[in-house]
């Protein structure tokens, strides 16, 4: 099954945005953990500064990535240099039709053959696309907590809604929002664990491509 990986699969702009995503997630997670509980002294100002800086980097990077999807062309299938507008390769493609169940069966070892995939498999597309609302949810809940923006109507409405959800009549209490923001990080970490595992379970060619832009397979 091993695919040939050509540079057209991940054009250079996407290699860069992926790198920036990784760095932002890394620094946001570490600084966020420290802000959650400062396990050693002397670092809070740096941690908060780091958190705010990479928060803006991540939001800008994600927005840019979405815009680029409408501009840059990428390989539309595995094993090909044939390109299409990137956004088309993210949305369901013909090869994705009827393939959800076979993918689930495959991962549960109920199916021997590797299911036919489009640019990405069905579950893969769902997971990747889910990172967009997930990241924006992390940003939104973060702004709900951040002093300069927490009393903006747009964010205060969310704070009140989440507080009510957690314990009816919670008013504008920030605690439920703080916990939600923290848990979103865990969801992102869980996604990352599955992403790293599934991307590299067969071999490390996908990592070589996305990080070093190095082609593999027969050219």
């Amino acid at each position: 099954m091993a695919h040939k990986l050509y540079r057209e699969a991940h054009p250079m702009p996407f290699v860069l945005t992926h790198w920036i995503n990784l760095l932002a997630m890394f620094f946001l997670t570490l600084s966020g953990f420290y802000i959650h509980f400062p396990i050693f002294p002397g670092f809070m100002g740096v941690a908060r500064g780091t958190h705010f800086f990479w928060m803006f980097v991540l939001i800008i990077n994600l927005t840019l990535r979405i815009v680029l999807a409408f501009v840059v062309k990428s390989a539309n299938m595995p094993d090909t240099r044939e390109v299409d507008l990137d956004i088309k390769n993210w949305l369901p493609q013909a090869a994705n039709r009827h393939q959800m169940i076979p993918w689930i069966k495959y991962y549960l070892f109920l199916k021997k053959d590797h299911p036919i995939s489009a640019k990405y498999g069905v579950l893969q597309k769902i997971a990747y696309l889910a990172t967009i609302p997930m990241t924006f949810a992390a940003a939104y809940t973060g702004f709900c907590l951040w002093g300069p923006t927490s009393d903006w109507g747009f964010f205060l409405a969310g704070t009140t809604w989440v507080a009510d959800l957690f314990n009816a009549g919670g008013g504008a209490s920030l605690m439920p929002m703080r916990i939600l923001h923290y848990w979103i990080m865990w969801v992102i970490l869980i996604f990352t664990a599955a992403h790293v595992y599934l991307a590299n379970i067969y071999n490390f060619a996908p990592s070589k491509m996305i990080f070093a832009w190095k082609e593999s397979g027969d050219h």
Partner: peptide, 23 residues
């Protein structure tokens, strides 16, 4: 799951892709 993948011989080249969709 990784242990299962290894035991199923999927590591490396991986299994063959299905000739046509189940559907």
């Amino acid at each position: 799951h990784g242990v299962g993948m290894k035991a199923a011989g999927r590591i490396g080249e991986g299994p063959a892709t299905e000739p046509m969709k189940e559907y």
